[in-house]
Amino acid sequence: MNAMPDLFAGAPDEALLIAFANGDAQAAQALTERLLPRVLAQATRMLAIQAEAEEVAQEAMIRLWKQAPDWRQGEAQVSTWLYRVVSNLCTDILRKRRGGVSLDQIAEPTDGAPSVVQQMQTNARMQALSDALAALPERQAQAVSLRHLEGLSNPEIAEIMDTNVRSVESLTARGKRALAAIMAGRKAELGYDDD
């Protein structure tokens, strides 16, 4: 990305969004530079497939542009809103994917270089994690990913998921237990036998 001089340094995301809604096209570029990496990272962690993650990131940003004129100042943070949109878009894709992608579809490394093998193993683990999230009830998958992949606090997750902290704790605990069980069943193929 060709970074433009940061005319909006220090300005909160919401200020940029309002500036964009008021006709400042440069605010859109600044928002893209600031938010797209975060949006893409969240989608990639949940989906593990680059093309799908990019599709989600693009759609989330388009929804942000559409939302800009109607943005209610002070009601929610832009980041919170985006976490929710990306999370929902990802669970939509995971729902469709259930039972679709397996580790068998991931190519074996073509040479024995440790870095390649290691990268393939990491990819396989990320794909296995994404498939395991797809197997969870959607609210559990969202809570677990926001907590353990994005590192958000329970109050933040509660706001994103429009629920209370106690509910988040419950969703996260049950989701994590289910994930652990699923991943335990695949630990040999994911390279955890000899650890």
């Binding site: 797209l36 990496p37 990272a41 990320m126 992949l149 991943m183």
Partner: peptide, 21 residues
């Protein structure tokens, strides 16, 4: 094992491609 996989996932930080931008 799960915590290890979570940690690897958190380290994933893709750079948006020029095409995506």
């Amino acid at each position: 094992i799960l915590e290890d996989i979570f940690a690897q996932a958190r380290a994933v930080a893709p750079t948006p491609s020029d095409d995506l931008i």
